[in-house]
Computed example of a mutant assay.
Amino acid sequence: MNTLRSWLLTGLLVSALAQSAVLAQIQKGYNIGDAITDFHLKNVDGRIVSLADYRTQKGIIIVFTSTHCPFAKTYEDRLRALDQKFAPQGYPVLAIMPNDPNAYEEDSFASMKARAQEKDYPYPYVMDDTQSTAHTFGATRTPQIYVVKRTNGQFILEYVGTIDDNPQDGASAQRHYVDEAVNNLLAGRPVQSPMTKPIGCGIKWK
Rank of each mutant, 00 (worst) to 15 (best):
N43F: 11
M97Y: 11
V191P: 04
A103G: 08
D83C: 02
F39G: 05
Y91W: 10
A35N: 15
P124G: 08
P194D: 00
A72V: 03
D100I: 04
G46E: 14
N2A: 12
L9W: 11
K206S: 06
D45K: 14
N2Y: 11
Y91D: 02
H135K: 15
E118D: 13
N152H: 14
K58F: 08
F64S: 00
L4D: 12
F64Q: 01
Q192D: 09
S6I: 02
V178C: 06
K149M: 12
L94K: 03
G161H: 05
P122V: 12
L185T: 02
L12Y: 09
P190Y: 13
D53F: 11
K28S: 10
A18N: 10
F71V: 02
A114V: 01
I26S: 06
I60E: 01
A87L: 11
P88H: 11
A72C: 13
A21I: 07
A171E: 14
F155L: 09
W205Y: 13
A181E: 04
I62C: 09
I32R: 13
P190A: 11
Y91H: 09
R78P: 00
A87N: 12
I61P: 04
P143C: 07
I145K: 03
N2D: 12
T162P: 00
G90M: 11
V22A: 09
R80T: 10
P98E: 06
S20Q: 15
D53C: 10
V14D: 00
D100M: 10
M127R: 11
R47I: 07
T130I: 06
Q192R: 13
A87G: 10
T10F: 15
Y30A: 03
Q174R: 15
I203Y: 04
N184G: 00
E105Q: 15
T74G: 08
P92A: 06
Q27G: 08
V63S: 04
R80H: 14
V191L: 10
G90K: 09
Y75R: 08
G33K: 14
D179S: 14
I26L: 14
G29I: 03
S66Y: 02
L186R: 07
Q57A: 06
Y146Q: 04
A87T: 07
K73N: 13
Y123I: 01
K113T: 05
T136H: 15
